[in-house]
Design a protein around this nucleic acid. Structure first.
Length: 480
RNA sequence: GCGCCUCUAGCUCAAUGGCAGAGCAGCGGGCUUUUAACCCGUUGGUUCAGGGUUCGACCCCCUGGGGGCGCACCA
């Protein structure tokens, strides 16, 4: 570094004007035949990924966000001083160059460099240029290094970006308004999950990081916004696994005058369109099977699926003892405070969930486990609710929203009673939300989609950490 | 939280209980059409940490730590 500065050069200059990104050069001159020279001048900038030095001629592979291109650096063209500077480049350095477009004898599209500027010196060596970086811990802790050398890692986040922007386009086209609601909640509602707790100093009060977007968004439906959605981070203080990160991204939408059937339809449209936008096709390979998302997604009733799995008719109207004995007979252990609905959910998770491969709407969840969903118009024990499962993973959850404030209060009170009885994940009575419902919420369909899991599905990875740039890890121990 | 696996140079990996090595990166040199360029030379180690067994430990044992996977937990 001192040598660079002593030579009068600046290892960290302020800016560089480029005329093209690398993809644009490839698009414009990619057709050139081998051994061509042009007078077309370009300036490009990027990171030096490979160097091949053959004395008075140096080849470098330069990479920017859009792609790679070869630099052809001839001592006779760039001059002795410029050539000496290029010789000093290391793998990993950022450099900007100007020159003409050409192809080599072997046909490699190149920039024949007549001027080169070091843009940023890399003082730490790049991971192995061929094997890259494979240690998962290092990849996630040093995501910057992962992104530099692993094409696959970059691709996963391109897919993620395409999914999110595709969702926004689809929702905008259908008249949805994007909103932002609080992350800091005075009570953590809208889902069954343990929250993170934090403290506000000036107000001197406990606050919870949100575990769902639901209750604020439905307040906006009460307010007359009719179609709203939010794509936002939520936080659940629970285990970490290949499917779970403590902070993850949820898209929730609420549509006035709609019910669960409308919501299932929009779920299909969102995900199928995102697949086409992110991968160029609606056909995916899921667990080894080729599946076309554009075909209608099957619907499977939860009680029907469980009944088939255990070989007996199961329904939340049955006595708890009877369901508990069915559970015991099928190898599922039941806690004494569980109701009929919870036992059925447990049976479903144990016997049915993991065997679902193609996108499937599981419908008709028991009332007991669905405190914000509206009762099925044909069955008082069930709700008009669905969950979308793909490859054994839950991707989405939606329902006809409960909008009767009296019934909602009763459901909240049942939640609170369960919480006080020791079930930490159950909810509380949200008085402000009840007040909102008392103003009248139109009939509404609501949906939540786990964006990380959609990104996993469409990028074909089995770990949520592959689609979260900086997944939650234990802090690194720095000795010093 | 439990079980199994794993941790060696900056990176990717070797090394029957017997001198810690290779490739890449780095450093020095050579080469004007290379493609993971090539050729010659060369630097680089608390083998995750601590303890034990042994004449001798990267290797076997114990404790601890990081990570992975599975289970549990988990709309």
């Amino acid at each position: 570094m001192a040598e660079i500065r002593a030579s009068g050069a600046e290892p960290y200059p302020y800016r560089f004007d480029r005329s093209h990104d690398i993809a644009l050069v490839r698009a414009g001159w990619g057709h050139l035949e081998a051994g061509s020279e042009t007078d077309d001048r370009v300036s490009v900038a990027g990171r030096v990924m490979l160097l091949r030095d053959s004395g008075k001629l140096i080849f470098a592979t330069l990479r920017d966000r859009s792609g790679d291109i070869q630099l052809f650096v001839s001592r006779a063209v760039i001059g002795d001083d410029g050539f000496a500077e290029v010789k000093e480049l290391d793998l990993g350095d950022w450099v900007g160059v100007e020159g003409t477009v050409m192809t080599t004898r072997k046909g490699e599209l190149s920039v024949k460099v007549d001027s080169s500027t070091l843009l940023s010196k890399a003082v730490r060596p790049l991971p192995d240029k061929w094997h890259g970086l494979s240690d998962t811990d290092t990849r996630f802790r040093q995501r910057y290094a992962d992104l530099i050398v692993n094409e696959e890692a970059r691709r996963h986040f391109e897919v993620r970006h395409e999914v999110i922007s595709s969702f926004r386009r689809t929702l905008a086209a259908e008249g949805f308004i994007e909103v932002e609601t609080p992350v800091l909640h005075t009570e953590a509602g809208g889902a069954h999950a343990r929250p993170f707790v934090t403290h506000h100093n000036t107000l001197d009060m406990e606050l919870y990081l949100r575990i769902a977007l639901e209750l604020h968004l439905k307040r906006l439906i009460v307010g007359g916004m009719e179609r709203v959605y939010e794509i936002g981070r939520i936080f659940r203080n629970e285990g970490i696994s290949t499917r779970h990160n403590p902070e993850f991204t949820m898209m929730e939408l609420y549509q006035a005058f709609a019910d669960w059937t409308d919501v299932m339809a929009i779920t299909e449209r969102l995900i199928t369109t995102a697949a086409a936008d992110a991968t160029g096709s609606t056909v995916l390979t899921i667990a080894g099977q080729s599946i076309d998302l554009s075909e209608p997604w099957p619907r499977l009733s939860m009680t029907g699926a469980v009944s088939e799995a255990v070989g007996r008719e199961v329904h939340p109207s049955q006595p708890i003892a009877e369901l508990a004995s069915i559970a015991a007979a099928s190898g599922v252990s039941v806690a004494p405070n569980w109701g009929a609905g919870k036992i059925i959910e447990e049976l479903f998770e144990h016997h049915c969930e993991s065997s679902i491969v193609r996108p499937t709407f599981v419908t008709g969840h028991p009332v007991e486990i669905s405190p914000l969903a509206r009762v099925d118009r044909n069955d008082p024990y069930l709700t008009e609710r669905f969950e979308l499962f793909v490859d054994g993973r839950e991707l989405a959850n939606g329902y006809s929203e409960l909008n009767d404030p009296i019934e909602q209060r009763a459901r909240f009170e049942a939640e609170q009673a369960a919480k006080e009885a020791g079930d930490a994940e159950r909810g509380t009575v949200d008085e402000d939300y009840l007040r909102a419902l008392e103003y009248g919420m139109p009939p509404t369909g609501g949906l939540g989609i786990g964006m990380d899991r959609v990104a996993m599905l469409l990028s074909g990875v089995d770990s949520i950490r592959e689609v979260i740039l900086f997944p939650t890890l234990r802090p690194e121990v720095h000795d010093r």
